[in-house]
Design a protein around this nucleic acid. Structure first.
Length: 276
DNA sequence: AGTCGGGATAGGC
DNA sequence: GCCTATCCCGACT
């Protein structure tokens, strides 16, 4: 067709990875315009970035180029940035190994993203199975397997995921069965201020205002309290982000450990395990 | 305007 | 000829 092919250089690829790590997939225009990456990507359009990312994705996941049988396009695929945990991923291609600019390390996005997905599947299974005393791992496994494609070592993964959810008090374990904790809601909730916190202040009457000074002092106090509250809110939000990041790291490490255990056991049994 | 998925095609083997 | 990477187009939000 029109223009001759312009091969992607490694610098461009790195810039694209870093851009996706920073802005998330789907924000191609933002990445392209970002002054940090624009020097490398100025000759590429946002469409080019999308195509290249798609291409990088299939080569990492080992799928053939453009799997035609991919799932139908889901509408409302307003993608979520890479951080969006259960975002699930929208219609974005399976995320390739992404370059994490902040840590200078390679992070497997797909592993990151599947953690919350599996958790959601576990909760879905438990609520669908509706067993009063909880469901055992086999039942949960069967439910998920029937409805989703799962990796070979999924039982192990499921086991560790269940243990983690129990540890996080999102599930409770009764003998060998797992049950959703009553007071648990899985979403991160934004705390709704309870009534006593938002109760209307008593109306100011004239005798509350003794002088302009006191009004100003009250205003200054209120302003400083608002600022302080905002500050605390920001610190809390940062802490939540950090906790999520650490949780994801833990999930990754756990998955890797399970895989290594699996390989070790197979090797111990005399099986030859070929690493890809 | 921006994004997406699919089709077309250049280029390497 | 086949496969992959890139370009292009139309649909969608």
């Amino acid at each position: 067709m029109g223009n001759p092919k312009q091969k992607w250089t490694s610098e461009e690829e790195e810039a694209l990875r870093a851009g996706v790590a920073k802005h998330g997939t789907g924000k191609w225009k933002n990445i392209q315009r970002d002054p940090e990456f624009n020097p490398y990507l100025f000759s590429r359009s946002n469409i080019d970035l999308k195509d290249k990312w798609r291409n990088m994705s299939v080569s990492v996941t080992g799928q053939g180029p453009r799997d035609k049988s991919r799932t139908p396009k889901t509408k409302a695929s307003s993608d979520a940035p890479a951080a969006q945990l259960s975002t699930p991923q929208t219609s974005a291609p399976p995320a390739p190994v992404a370059y994490d600019a902040s840590t200078d390390s390679i992070v497997d996005e797909s592993a990151k993203n599947c953690a919350p997905k599996y958790n959601a599947l576990i909760f879905e299974a438990l609520s669908a199975l509706k067993e009063p005393n909880g469901s055992d791992i086999t039942g949960i496994l069967r439910y998920i397997e029937q409805r989703n494609e799962v990796p070979q070592n999924f039982r192990r993964l499921l086991g560790s995921r269940l243990r983690r959810l129990v540890a996080q008090e999102k599930l409770e374990k009764i003998q060998n069965c797992f049950k959703v904790k009553e007071d648990n809601s899985f979403e991160t909730k934004t705390p709704i201020p309870n009534q006593k916190d938002v109760r209307p202040r008593p109306p100011l009457s004239a005798d509350h205002i003794t002088s302009v000074d006191t009004v100003e002092a009250a205003a200054a106090t209120a302003a400083s309290q608002v600022a302080e509250a905002e500050n605390k809110s920001y610190v809390a939000a940062e802490a939540i982000k950090e906790a999520e990041r650490i949780s994801n790291m833990a999930e990754d490490t756990d998955s890797q450990l399970q895989l290594l255990i699996d390989i070790f056991e197979r090797c111990s049994g005399g099986e030859i395990v070929i690493m890809a």
